[in-house]
Amino acid sequence: MEARQLTDVADTATAGLDDVIEVGGLRQRYGGFEAVRDVSFTVARGEIFALLGTNGAGKTTTTEVLEGFRPASGGTVRVLGLDPEPAAPAMMAGESPLTARERDALALAAQGAQAGEIAAALHLTEGTVRNYLSAAITKLGAPNRITAIRVAQEKGWL
């Protein structure tokens, strides 16, 4: 596959790309939990597309993979004909990799709150809170919640 740098979505027409987003068999695991399982779709140039689902369905994880902020555990992803993952480190240099929800959940965990208390405070389900905490731990390269809190505090993200 030939990789071409595109600077504008309008360039996709001249580059011969009918689909600006291609996802095939996308999988994302957090330890033993599979947050995204075998998701496939395409988005055509000019098409309006939405990801809909309940809390914890994998919408945010899928979006973060498309943005290059999270590597896929499996499957293929192409945005404008390119793999978005290699761009992630440059985009996140010096910036917090945490989403607002991940940061909120981690900040409450830093205060000693348990998943149920965090869920109540943020109006989420406990499963969604666990997903946010797991994502924060993964993004910070930490082996556990305590280390993730320490890393985020040291970098000024909490």
Rank of each mutant, 00 (worst) to 15 (best):
M1V: 09
E2A: 15
Q5P: 10
Q5W: 14
Q5S: 15
L6M: 08
L6V: 08
L6A: 02
T7F: 14
D8S: 14
D8R: 15
V9P: 13
A13Q: 12
A15H: 04
I21M: 13
V23D: 08
G24R: 15
V36W: 03
R37S: 15
D38S: 09
F41E: 09
A44K: 14
G46H: 08
E47R: 09
I48A: 14
A50M: 07
A50Y: 06
L51V: 02
L51G: 01
G56Y: 04
A57P: 10
A57Y: 07
K59F: 04
T63I: 15
E64K: 12
E64F: 10
E67D: 04
E67M: 11
R70I: 10
P71A: 14
P71E: 14
G74M: 04
R78Y: 02
L80Y: 05
G81Y: 10
G81K: 12
G81T: 11
P84G: 00
P84T: 03
E85H: 13
E85R: 13
A87E: 13
A88Y: 12
A93P: 08
G94I: 10
S96I: 06
S96D: 11
P97G: 07
T99N: 11
T99E: 06
R103P: 00
L108F: 00
A109Y: 00
A110S: 13
A113P: 00
A113T: 00
E117P: 01
A120W: 03
A121W: 00
T125H: 07
E126D: 03
N131A: 12
Y132M: 09
A135V: 00
L140N: 07
N144K: 03
V151F: 05
Q153N: 13
E154N: 14
K155L: 13
K155G: 04
L158D: 06
